[in-house]
Amino acid sequence: MFPQEAWNFRVLGHDPSAAWGRGSLVEIVAGHAYVGGVGGRDPGVFEGFTVHDVRDPRHPHKVFEFKAPPGIHMHKLRHAGENILYVNADRLPGEAGRVARPGFFIFDISHPAQPRQIGFFDMPGSGPHRFGVDLDRKLALLPNDAEGWNRRVIWTLDIRDPIRPEVVGIWGLPWQKMEGGAPGNDPVPADTVCTLHGPPIIRGNRMFAAFWGGGVAVIDCSDLARMQLVGHVSWSPPFVGATHTACPIGDRPYLVVTDEARARQVYRDSQFMWVLDIRDETRPVPVSTWFPERDKYAGRGGRFGAHNIIERITASGPWANIVFLTYFNAGLRAIDVSDPLRPVEVGHFVPASTSAQSIVQSNDVGTDAEGRIYLIDRNGGGMHILEYTG
């Protein structure tokens, strides 16, 4: 067991019941945290999502839970505006998900503690994994299979009416195009496979997307129905792959990119955070990497490596140039990328491991309008509510 580590973070509250202890994405709307669950085989752990009243962050408590239908991995959710929540329906692998209905659920959350399903958007193949919603542009961006494409590609949906989303365009890397064949069902792709992971992120007329084993793409999205590849870079091989998120640093010509640590093997020299220089958009160039002390964490068990970030990095304001990065058994890390060539850690929070939860697996992170940070564990730890004090 290891004690809690906290530098420039303060714990406000903790709710171990979030997502039955094993969570993924978190969204905070109207004083309530919605937490998608990764599921599992242990008793009392389910696919689906839970809702928590966090209006008093020192006393968060569960007020609702929704359990997924059989065969569905239901762990990613996004606020889609107008009191609407989208929750993915991603088929479980193999026979378990054979007859499941892929797509996403549409919930009315006008009563935040009592979500009510009001619709479902059907999609082919495996169904969407980590998707994004751009509330400013009224768009949903989903990684999903599509006819004529090999593996998951970008589905762009107009959600000006979030109850009735409309497909604007479907786009993938040119080499994902294929002739004939129906969309497949591959919800757990190998680390080296070229498949959109997401979520794609838009800045101006550019979209940035991570394609797992297929690298990072800079895309001209001036016309969402006819997007064009501008630049691309891939480092798999020699690195392992599993490229997860690509996010611009404010209006600066740099991207922060994470490769997701996987469960099958711990890599000391792969699956970390990168910074890319995109001053020449046609030739993105990795210029630095960051990871915590490998000798300290790599042997603790579970996944060691990067996962996701708060998917908005500003170039001004109190969090200017700070990346909030989940690093599984190394907890949450705050990284200053003011100098993109030399990222510097400026804070961290690693929950204590206990006899009940021997391995910390900090999985995802979100924030609310007040600047509180919500850290989600996927191995029994639930949700910590934090304040960054750096």
Rank of each mutant, 00 (worst) to 15 (best):
F239D: 06
P238M: 11
H244W: 04
Y254L: 07
L255R: 06
G250Y: 01
L255W: 06
D259N: 12
H244N: 13
A263V: 13
L255S: 05
V256F: 03
Y254V: 04
P238K: 08
T245N: 15
P248T: 01
R252G: 03
R264S: 14
A242R: 02
V257I: 09
V257M: 07
T243L: 14
A263N: 12
G250T: 01
H244C: 08
T243I: 15
R268S: 09
V266H: 04
V256H: 03
A261W: 09
L255K: 05
G241W: 00
V257K: 03
Y267G: 06
E260F: 03
Y254G: 05
H244R: 01
R252H: 06
Q265V: 15
T258E: 02
R262P: 00
Y254C: 04
P248E: 04
V266C: 06
T258P: 13
Q265L: 14
V256K: 05
D251G: 07
Y254I: 00
A261Y: 12
G241A: 01
T245Y: 12
F239Q: 12
R262V: 11
P238T: 13
D251E: 10
R262D: 13
Y267N: 10
E260R: 14
V266S: 07
A263R: 15
C247Y: 09
A261E: 08
R262E: 13
G250L: 01
P253F: 10
V256W: 03
G241T: 02
A263I: 12
A261G: 15
H244E: 14
I249S: 04
P248A: 02
R268W: 11
V240H: 10
V257D: 08
Y254M: 05
F239G: 03
R252D: 03
L255D: 05
Y254K: 01
T245R: 10
A242N: 13
P238C: 11
F239Y: 13
P238V: 13
P248C: 06
A242S: 15
T258Y: 02
R252Y: 00
P253K: 08
Q265F: 14
C247M: 14
R268Y: 11
Y254E: 12
I249K: 05
V257S: 06
P248V: 02
I249G: 02
P238L: 11
